[in-house]
Amino acid sequence: METGTWELKAGLAQMLKGGVIMDVVTAEQAKIAEDAGACAVMALERVPADIRAAGGVARMSDPTKIVEIQEAVTIPVMAKCRIGHFAEAQVLQALGIDYIDESEVLTPADEEHHVWKHNFKVPFVCGCRDLGEALRRIGEGAAMIRTKGEAGTGDIVEAVRHNRTVQSEIRKIINMSDDELPTEAKRLGAALELVQAVKREGRMPVVNFSAGGVATPADASLMMQLGADGVFVGSGIFKSSNPSMMAKAVVQAVTHYRDPEIVADVSKGLGDAMPGLAVRDMREGELLATRGW
């Protein structure tokens, strides 16, 4: 009997596909998310929109908060550690977290290296803006990828940009001949064997969700149609005027993303989506997606 294997880490992500992973900050919110049909929750002290507003250094959540959320639900519970902060990751593994998000939403602890994730039994999800970044994270042991988007904005534009970039780079590799792959691997800054895996499988070698900006059911449908395996919704649920209804609507839009009549139906009467921040109006230093190397 073996535990902590790659198959088990990547396999849990397979179970989350076609689902919505929601950021929650209290046990009560976690229950609302579970009741709405979320396939997992991300246990946080603050949602990204509030992390932005608060400024300063954003760290791993207080374990008390995390445990409170673990006790409230039976769906998998994820939590974030800072980029490169393997000690925070060790703490999260000790708490029995089901998935660790090594996240650019928190203030990076290391500006050159990410956590060597193969050392852990618990699986990791990491963000990417392009295929090279995704494959570097997979090389370090990430068993799930999410395109970053721009967290805490409610603006879908970066999520679309990152998703389209990844999908178009994958299509390019599929059409390359084997002898072109080493140069492409060099260009992407990724291991050749992972570039070969992309060509062989015709997709990202692990489950790939979309994150950072989903605020409405139509946003969720858009990301699914662009090729995401599922979506993370951060501030979009609990910063909307009716979180329970918004949560249910986004879940349904992800299942039925190819059925505009259903997406239209669930989009009715939701009240206000989260107040947004247009990424175009933000300063370079305010962007979270540029964190990660």
């Binding site: 076609g18 396939c39 299942t255």
Partner: peptide
């Protein structure tokens, strides 16, 4: 395979 709580909710919803 999936999340049973999620599947159960969605079965009812759909």
């Amino acid at each position: 395979g999936g999340e049973s709580t999620t599947l159960r909710r969605l079965f009812d919803l759909y």
